[in-house]
């Protein structure tokens, strides 16, 4: 077991800061003099080990370092503290205020209009009523899911694949439909079955996620994509017991269940966020920027230089690696188009 007092202390500080509403933590001054540029990042939840939010922090820190700007992190713990943190950030008048996720849809519909001189950036979603001083970053998750599907199609022995997803919502279908489409592009007879965790805590119920995965493996499914957030580990346990294989999501999860995870459907939040912050600081404000495979905003671990050393089982299959890279090039070149479930 790993006991790290420093980390634990930081976590406790974070928790306190989140309670304060406008607290700050993780300040990284770039120089001796107070820098002219500054970035404030507001998260919808405490960062903790939420890998998605960790990437968000990493991206903002990287951008701040490159720009010589100061960086402050405001962690929220619920919708009320999000609004309080945004108010506190606006009063601090930084160069850019960054909000992560759809949790900012409401507050970013109104606040940017009230403060036309302040620049805002929303990552991974966009407020419906977008003001000219609000820029948005969104991702083509479906392109990465399609690539993972190609791997699943090549590696399934039974011809049956599945997805265990948190909820049956249009957005989450970006991890489902393109995954099956990718598999069928290399093996047309593949059948795909999605199951949903649901229940009272769909994003963190590994027991239900495992039951769902067992339902799939019991029916002969041998490759399952885990899109159940905190429930993913339950899916890995189920495939480990049945001799199947799984896909992780958002970050490299291969090490969480060595030998059982083929690859991961990745979203490079840090890369896209850092690029968007630099654009805004350079004066190119507002608008929606979409990051797909072409922009390096999404991907799979197999595309990385060190794919064979990533701990993911896809590294053991050079022919799969080659095929995935070729399909990636086809998508980037426009030869293959991936249907977006959100566009009907």
């Amino acid at each position: 077991m790993r006991i790290t007092p420093a980390l634990a202390g930081t976590a406790a500080l974070f928790a306190l800061a989140a309670c304060g509403g406008g607290g700050e933590a993780g300040t990284t001054p770039a120089s001796e003099n107070p820098p002219a540029k500054s970035i404030i990042l507001i998260t919808p939840n405490p960062v903790g080990t939420n890998s998605f939010l960790q990437l968000g922090v990493k991206g903002a820190e990287a951008a701040a370092k490159d720009l010589g700007a100061s960086f402050k992190l405001y962690e929220s713990k619920d919708p009320t503290s999000i609004a309080q943190n945004v108010d506190a950030a606006v009063r601090a008048k930084p160069t850019v205020i960054v909000g992560i996720s759809f949790s900012f849809d409401d507050v970013f519909s109104t606040v940017p209009k009230q403060h036309p001189g302040q620049q805002f950036l929303q990552v991974d979603s966009c407020a419906k009523d977008q003001a000219p001083n609000l820029a948005c970053v969104s991702f083509k998750e479906h392109e990465a899911a399609y690539l993972a599907g190609v791997e699943a199609g090549l590696l399934t022995a039974s011809g049956q694949i599945g997805v265990v997803a948190a909820l049956d919502t249009p957005f989450i279908h970006r991890w489902i439909d393109p995954f099956f489409a990718g598999a069928r592009s290399v093996k047309p007879e593949v059948t795909g079955t999605p199951l949903y965790v649901g229940g009272n805590n769909p994003f963190s119920d590994p027991a239900r996620a495992k039951s769902q995965a067992q339902t799939l493996t019991g029916r002969g499914v041998d490759v399952i994509a885990a899109a159940a957030s905190g429930g993913n580990q339950g899916v890995f346990e189920a495939v480990a017991a049945s001799g199947g294989k799984a896909f992780g999501v958002d970050v490299n999860q291969c090490a969480q269940s060595p030998g059982n995870v083929i690859d991961n459907i990745l979203k490079h939040v840090d890369v896209a966020e850092a690029a968007a912050i630099k654009e805004i600081v350079a004066g190119r404000t507002g608008g929606v920027k979409v990051y797909g495979l072409a922009e390096g905003g999404v991907g799979v671990t197999a595309l990385a230089e060190d794919a064979t050393a990533s701990g993911c089982t896809v590294g053991d299959n050079p022919e799969v690696l080659a095929k995935v890279r070729q399909v990636r090039d086809d998508i980037v070149a426009g030869k293959t188009t991936v249907a977006d479930p959100l566009q009907g």
Binding site: R2, A8, A11, G48, T49, N50, S204
Partner: peptide, 18 residues
């Protein structure tokens, strides 16, 4: 949630070979 961060140094989900 609090003790999880204190003891395991992480939040969210904890699992380990131990």
């Amino acid at each position: 949630a609090f003790l999880m961060r204190q003891i395991f140094g992480s939040g969210g989900t904890y699992t380990s070979p131990d």
